[in-house]
Structure formats: C-alpha cells, structure tokens
Design a binder for these strands. Structure first.
Lengths: 259, 259
DNA sequence: AACGGGATGATCAAATACGATCATAAAAGC
DNA sequence: GCTTTTATGATCGTATTTGATCATCCCGTT
C-alpha cells in the first residue's frame, strides 16, 4: 500500500543518506517502476533530490524528517506506553506534557478519547496535536524554540515553570545510564527537565526499553526523583531489579499483542 | 452499534498506525462498505486521513478550518503587504510577530530569504513556519492557546511581555473603525495587543483595506499609537485623508501586479 | 566519437479499491 | 403495534495503483 511505502522510502533515505532504485525496491517490496513513480512524486513535493539511478533527501526536508524519524523509532513500544499512561490521567487535573516523542504518543492517544484536562506543555508538536481537542485547555510554556525536537527551553521557560504546580508530569528521556540518572542531549533541556520535576506531585517517566543503559551527554536527575516509570517488557532483568530496588513503581507494557 | 465501531476503528488506528479497509472490517466485525462509510465520516471530521486502500489517524489536527479560511481571504493583498513589510526588517534586531494572518504572510516571505533576527511570537502558525529557518532565533511567548487563530493569550502572556522590549512589532488587526481605533474579536487578544504596543520602539500595522471601516467588538488602541501602517491601494480616499491627518507613516501597496 | 550497459518515462493490461444505488434490517418515534 | 428514519450489506460501474514492456536517453569505457 502506497502510504506505507512512501514512509519506508523516506526513512530508508534518512538512514542511508542515498539509495538507488533497486535498494528502495527491495526495502519496500515494490517494483522498480513503482519506486520511480514514488520518487518522482517525492521530488515534486520537495522531499527528495533525484540523481541518475537513485535519490537522497532534499536538504530542506532534513530537520523535519529528523524529528519525524525519531518519532517513528520504537513506535509500537511508544504507543503501548502511551496507552498505559492514558489510563493514569485523571479528569479535571492539571498535567504537564514534555516534548518527548513518547509523550507525543500519549497526546495522540488523548485525541482518540478526550478528557477534560488543563494541559501545559513546552512541545510544539504536543500543542499542535491537542489544540483542537474538545474539553482541553492547552497552555504553552514559552521560551526559545529548538528545531531539533520542537521544544521550548531556556531560562525564561524555567522561571515561568517556577510559578506553577502540576498534578502530574509526563516526561520522556533520551537515556538512563548505569548510574541510574536520566540524561538528555541538550543542556537547556536538562535544566528545564529538572525544573519540571521540582514542580509536580507525580512525575511519570515514559521511556521504551532502548533508553535504559544507553547514553547522552547531559544529566537531568536521578531516576529516584521519578514516582512512576512506564516502559516496555523488553527491558532486561538487571534494570528490572534496579528499578525494584529503588522502589520505583514500574509498569512493564507487553509488546507484540493487539490491544 | 455505530459509535462503538467508530471507537474501535480509532483505537485500532492508534495502535497500528495504519490499517487497510479489510483489517478494519475484521477488527470491528462490520462489512467493508460500512467501514468505508465510517472512514468517510471520520475524514470529514478531521479525525483520520484516508489513502487509497486504507487510513491513518490524522496528523496534528491542522489549523482550524476557520483559521485556514481567513488565511486565504485577501491573500494577494496580504502577500503584497508582507513583501513591503519584509523590506522594513533590519538584520540583527529583535522583532515581535503577532498571530494575525497578514503577519503570517510576512513570516512566509522571511522563509524565502532569511535574515538573522531574534523573533518573538505568540502565534503557533508563525512559530511553525519559522522553526527551521536558518539564522533565526525563534522564541514563543507562552500562554493559553486559543484554537480560533492558534495564538497564545492571557494574563500570563501579558506579564511575560512586560519583561521585553522589541525593536519592531508587526501587528495585525480585525478592524479599524470610524473612531480611528483598532478592534479585535477576543478580549484577551485585545489586552495582549495593548501590552505588545507598549513594549516596542516601532509598531507596524499590517492590514489590508477591507479592515478599515469594518467592525469588531473589543477595542485595542487608537491607531495613533501605531508608527507605520502598511495597507493596500484599495483603501478609500476618506481613510487616506484620515491617516495623513493623524501623521501616520502609511504605505499603500499596489495590487494586481506581479512583484 | 562510438558502443554497450544501465536508467528513464510512457503506454497498456490486470488487479484492487472506491462510491453510488438499491433492497433489507434495525432502531426510533408516535 | 405501526410508521418513519437510519444503518447495513450486496452489486455494479468507475477510479486508482501496480508491474511488464518498449523506445529513448545517459553514462562510463574504449
């Protein structure tokens, strides 16, 4: 089916940088003729640049596709985590959604069955998804806009946070290292995340298993600052033991099964 | 029951990301014909995006239909005004863009030829258009998000404004009445607009001729608070005289001619 | 400059999907 | 219980997508 195939082509090109028509045909299971048509259309839409025999992503499409590509990583796990997180939401409460891609899945889940909530967020994509959802009051934090993940950060955003209290915070992370601290890719984001955690009754971490044991440069906070972790059942036993030892309420979401 | 099935469809699409009509028929126990009718209705309501052979949940509930409709009104005039406004921008300055549809045309013009600017805005659509533009630092104001025009308003946003000064403000308006005051459709928007005008060295009003002499319920400020007006040459003579009498620097942009 | 191999887009046939129409069933209102 | 309205599924004509084939073009090598 066409729509799925176009997605696969974009992600293949994002990962590989360049591909020829034969590679794309193999990657998608379609014929060479079909791939050429697809590339023709993608070129018309400014998404790819064609060369003789193949294609690469158009320069202009780069930042947006980088974000879309990260959204697509571990998407099944993120959706399943989003489903469970949805079950924790309480109507008529004030909730902060950070700008992470797993939190974005929670926002998407909320669109399927809206609840009456007051939502704060520093994520442009989250705001965009929720702006027209019935029963929601959506507030943006404000601050300097980062194009890598469409989030607002900076001292301005942090100071504003200081004036609020949230019933719940739904937080993503880039990594949880062996030292049991959460890490992220940007210092301003790390600083803002600390400020968020300091302003909530219940911090909920949404992170698929691939984040545990991986690495990023900027420390956010010890995972013991988190009240609830929702991850998936692919998490290895050592981490399960670690989380239990730290008395962190953890939900392991099964994968590969239709809900 | 129909609403039950619609729910199942949405849940299935949330979990699977994309499904074809046959899969949805199997998931719901209904026929293919019924599923197509359901998808047609869901698409009309902006909940799903259909493709040949299937559907996915709609990506961000794109800007509200009414907003898109207003963007298209007087588009030639707005583009021409945006072009002239672009000529007033000074590199390495701090500029505030409000959330109006004419200001959005200025943002789009800026994408074509970027300038190194620090941009503040309370418009989600403006932020979206500018987030990936090279050389720009984009800051969002923050505040409560209105879905009518994707802008942030409220006491929170106003108070934040009080901490900044802008070299230039580019402002839209809903109406300029006979009493030479600007008017808008929402009280919080009117209040925020006053706060903007109070924090800039140069307020530039971008308004096509149709706004002059029209009406809206909430007063913003007298037009004499504005330093520069950019409108189009369709403005009638009486208004031209009025603006001259008020010593307001006004540019009348000719229409109907390709720039 | 010529040639061979590979790539391209146009055309056509086949397969799949779509929406309109109609008959039937179910639900709602009186 | 009856009538009207709404929803559902089958059928059919139309539309879209896909893959094969073919003539033409492009690129690298001699």
């Amino acid at each position: 089916m066409q729509s799925d195939r176009i997605n696969k082509i974009q992600h293949h090109l994002y990962s590989a940088g360049f591909a020829n028509v034969q590679e794309l045909a193999e990657a998608t299971g379609a014929s060479i003729v079909t791939i050429r048509r697809d590339l023709q259309r993608l070129e018309e839409n400014g998404i790819v640049t064609r060369t003789h025999g193949g294609a690469r992503l158009a320069e202009a499409a780069g930042p947006e596709l980088a974000f879309q590509s990260r959204v697509q990583e571990h998407l099944d796990a993120k959706r399943a985590i989003g489903e469970v997180a949805y079950g924790l939401l309480q109507p008529h409460t004030t909730v902060f959604f950070d700008a992470g891609t797993t939190v974005l899945q929670l926002a998407r889940r909320l669109r399927v069955e809206p609840l009456p909530l007051t939502i704060f967020t520093n994520g442009l994509a989250v705001a965009q998804d929720l702006v027209n959802v019935e029963g929601l009051s959506v507030n943006l934090l404000g601050g300097q806009l980062r194009n890598e993940n469409l989030s607002m950060v900076g001292p301005y955003a942090e100071r504003l946070l200081g004036e609020f209290w949230f019933d719940q915070l739904y937080l993503g992370t880039s990594a949880v290292r062996g030292d049991a601290q959460m890490y992220t890719l940007n210092p301003a984001e790390a600083s803002l995340n600390r400020a968020m955690i300091a302003r909530t009754s219940q911090a909920v971490l949404l992170a698929d298993a691939s984040k545990f044991g991986s690495s990023a440069p900027y420390a956010v906070a010890p995972i013991s600052d988190i009240h609830t972790v929702i991850t998936d059942s692919a998490l290895d036993g050592a981490w399960k033991t670690r989380l239990a030892d730290l008395n962190i309420d953890t939900t392991f979401v099964p994968l590969g099964r239709k809900l």
